[in-house]
Amino acid sequence: MTETPMIQIEGVEKAFGSKEVLRGVNLAVPRGESMVIIGGSGTGKSVLLKCVLGLIHPDTGVIKVDGEDVERAERDAFLARFGMLFQGAALFDSLPVWQNVAFRLLRGALKRPKTEAREIAIEKLRRVGLTPDVADLFPAELSGGMQKRVGLARAIAAEPEIIFFDEPTTGLDPIMAGVINDLIREIVVEMGATAMTITHDMTSVRAIADDVAMLHGGKIRWAGPVAQMDDSGDPYLTQFITGSAEGPIEAVR
């Protein structure tokens, strides 16, 4: 008997006005695996991710998380299973770092005493390579790389089963990007979480992915294990991996 995928996307379509972004996406993310979705800018990677989270509602199609339809799930319990690292980290400017990390632990169903929440936040900050003295700084006082780490600490603070990473290395220098990639890989393996990452950084793909899916023209163009990616024989995927201007993907879109 095959195991139910943690995330199952079936025939998802989404248009914004006359612009059809997703045109029938089908994808399954197995439990405990790290799936990386690649694709050019504006191909709908972020839209797909937000559809899974219920931040955007698809026009048609079904998205199931652990066998349960996203649209019918009880929101708080559903969202409590997720952690997300946003592209720009999306830290709350008005809160110090530790309160950003412990946001979920300071309010709602997972609320803990303030001292305990702070201890957990500091432990998570350590896990992503930040020292406790960062805890009382505000996000604006941190560098881009540090903000990403804080965002990562926030994403894992409540020990989620599923973690989403939206362009985790965008805007970082290669060394910091490598550090973030390694952290993501370590944390996902360590926590046994299911991960879904969207990126167009091929170094990230090779460092993070178990499986890769390429989104192009509103559909999944290719999906498979990362080890088979280079020998896929798919001209779109090959062009994307090599970054060539020559090929079926138009350079000017």
Binding site: D76, G83, M84, A90, R104, A109
Partner: peptide, 8 residues
């Protein structure tokens, strides 16, 4: 969006 994902 981050608020929503943090169940707020």
């Amino acid at each position: 969006d981050a608020l929503v994902t943090l169940s707020t």
